[in-house]
């Protein structure tokens, strides 16, 4: 079970990294989403033990429940990633409205240096 999850984590990280290296902003954002999911899943893998839902009530043996802390952490991380991704999407939309394209521009400095090289060769 754990091996399957681990494989899934590595696929998410791999696909996320591939998308992150694209020029289109939308793909970059999807890539970041995948990487965050991979990280969240990875936290679940770090649980010390699995078991019954960690709800303490009468008749539940505390030793039989799952480790609740990673679940709480993942929940927090998901909320934060969700918020930031929403902000990034808004930023991408604004960028599209301003420039009319979804492409990430070249770095200004890079362009200047490239131009300099062309002029002096």
């Amino acid at each position: 079970m754990s091996l399957v999850t681990l494989l899934l984590v590595s696929i998410l990280f791999g696909a996320g990294t591939f998308l992150l290296l694209q020029r289109s902003l939308a793909k970059i954002i999807i890539g970041l989403g995948l990487i965050s999911h991979g990280a969240n899943l990875f936290i679940m893998l770090s649980s010390t033990r699995s078991g019954a839902p960690p709800v303490l009530s009468d008749g539940v043996d505390p030793a039989s429940v799952a480790d609740p802390l990673p679940q709480a952490m993942v929940l927090t991380a998901i909320v934060i990633t969700f918020g930031v991704t929403a902000f990034l999407l808004a930023l991408a939309l604004r960028s599209y409205l301003l420039t009319g394209s979804d492409e990430v521009e070249d770095d200004l400095e890079d362009r200047r240096i490239a131009q300099h090289a062309v002029e002096h060769s």
Binding site: S36, A39, F42, I43, S46, A77
Partner: peptide, 13 residues
């Protein structure tokens, strides 16, 4: 955001 994802991985480790 990438650094945060890496931070989460560190936390998991």
């Amino acid at each position: 955001l990438l650094a945060s994802a890496l931070f989460l991985v560190t936390i998991a480790f």
